Computed example of a mutant assay.
Amino acid sequence: MTGQIDFIDLSKILLDDFFNIEEEDMRLTRNIEKNRLDEPLTVEGPVNGFYVLVDGYKRYRSLKSLGWTTVQCKIEPVSDIAHRIIKRLRWDLNKKKMKSSERIRYVHLLISLNWSSDMIAQKTGIARDVIKKYMKIHYIPQEYKDIINSWGLGHEALLALDRMQKRLPRYTFYQIVDVLNHQTPHIFGYHIEAIEYLSKVEEFRRLPESSVRRSIDKTIIHKTFKLKEAQDIVNIEAVAQGIIKNEAAIGQYLDYVKTEAAELERILSPNLMINVPQVRRKELILIFENCLGKVNSTYRGRR
């Protein structure tokens, strides 16, 4: 019977705890109810009249829910957990239905069973560079995995966070984490990758906490973000803190100030100000008076 397609009682199919899922896919259940089963389950066996389910756990849950008693199965020889994982990864190479987190978990188990990256790549067809990336994730401290999980992000964000913690002083790294913890609902994977560009700018690690926070706030509003944008943001903060004093950076900073001032002048229109309460108007006036005070005091001090 090995290698054949045959009908098997659901009661004779055993679930492997490593692959088992508890929740039912209701959409899949409705689809099977309407269109029947589109492909057989894959099992290994028999052993003492029972079979181990290898592929089709979601379909199995749906079939049980629908009250099916038998199902068509592809029967393969009995193997071990490692080779069942290999089968699932190899099948997924074409189907692409497996979540990346599930794929990474399988690779990690193979690593723990002393499979090398070359062996895994050869048996599954997954590119060696991808396997190496999964292996890096395997060795990232659980603390950072928990942080990324709490933000609901994936493995690319995890890798970026890990690279940052290796690059930055500990206090700067945790400032970033703290800022992002307060913005969790609005943070996506590309934000973490953008903030990583900040960490690549040498002066970033020298910024005080307030400048680190402003830099991150300016970063996460960008749709696209690369090293140049990161350099510009850090340079502005570094000039303001007196960390950078060269003429080119100061010129860039002044251009930024002029642009922002012109934008403020534009949005503080008469139509807006006529509807601003007196208390809020006084707040705005005080802010601008402070700005002019700084400019004038610095100018007088140099005459």
Results as ranks from 00 to 15, higher is better:
Asp6Cys: 14
Ile8Ser: 05
Ile8Leu: 03
Asp9Ala: 12
Asp9Pro: 08
Lys12Tyr: 03
Ile13Pro: 02
Asp17Ser: 12
Asp25Phe: 06
Met26Cys: 08
Met26Ile: 15
Asn31Glu: 12
Asn31Met: 09
Ile32Gln: 04
Arg36Gly: 08
Leu37Asp: 03
Leu41Phe: 05
Thr42Asp: 05
Val47Arg: 10
Val47Asp: 02
Asn48Ile: 01
Gly49Tyr: 08
Leu53Pro: 09
Val54Gly: 00
Val54Thr: 06
Gly56Trp: 00
Ser62Phe: 04
Ser62Ile: 05
Ser62Thr: 05
Leu63Met: 13
Ser65Asn: 15
Ser65Arg: 13
Gly67Pro: 02
Thr69Asn: 09
Gln72Asp: 10
Ile75His: 02
Ile75Phe: 01
Glu76Met: 15
Pro77Gln: 08
Asp80Pro: 00
Ile81Gln: 07
Ala82Trp: 06
Arg84Val: 05
Ile86Asn: 03
Asp92Ser: 05
Lys95Arg: 13
Ser101Glu: 13
Glu102Ser: 14
Glu102Ile: 15
Arg103Ser: 13
Tyr106Ile: 07
His108Lys: 14
Leu109Asn: 11
Ser112Val: 10
Asp118Arg: 14
Ile120Tyr: 00
Ala121Phe: 00
Thr124Asp: 02
Gly125Ile: 04
Arg128Lys: 09
Ile131Lys: 00
Lys132Trp: 06
Met135Lys: 04
Ile137Arg: 06
Pro141Met: 07
Lys145Val: 06
Ile148Lys: 00
Ile148Ser: 05
Ile148Cys: 07
Ser150Leu: 10
Trp151Phe: 09
Leu153Met: 00
Glu156Ala: 11
Ala157Ile: 09
Leu159His: 08
Leu161Ser: 15
Arg163Phe: 10
Gln165Asp: 05
Leu168Asp: 00
Pro169Gln: 03
Thr172Tyr: 09
Val179Asp: 07
Leu180Val: 10
His182Pro: 01
Thr184Val: 12
His191Arg: 05
Ile192Ala: 07
Ile195Cys: 01
Leu198Ala: 01
Val201Cys: 01
Glu203Asn: 11
Arg205Ile: 04
Arg205Glu: 14
Leu207Ile: 03
Arg213Pro: 03
Arg214Pro: 00
Ser215Val: 04
Thr219Phe: 00
His222Gly: 05
Thr224Glu: 14
Lys228Asp: 04
Ile233Thr: 01
Val234Asn: 00
Val239His: 02
Ile243Cys: 01
Lys245Arg: 09
Asn246Asp: 15
Glu247Thr: 11
Ile250Ser: 07
Tyr253His: 02
Tyr256His: 14
Val257Lys: 13
Val257Asn: 12
Glu260Gln: 11
Glu260Lys: 15
Glu263Ser: 12
Leu264Pro: 05
Arg266Leu: 12
Asn271Leu: 14
Asn271Met: 14
Leu272Gln: 08
Val276Tyr: 08
Val276Arg: 09
Pro277Val: 10
Leu284His: 02
Leu284Asn: 05
Leu284Met: 09
Cys291Val: 15
Lys294Cys: 13
Ser297Pro: 00
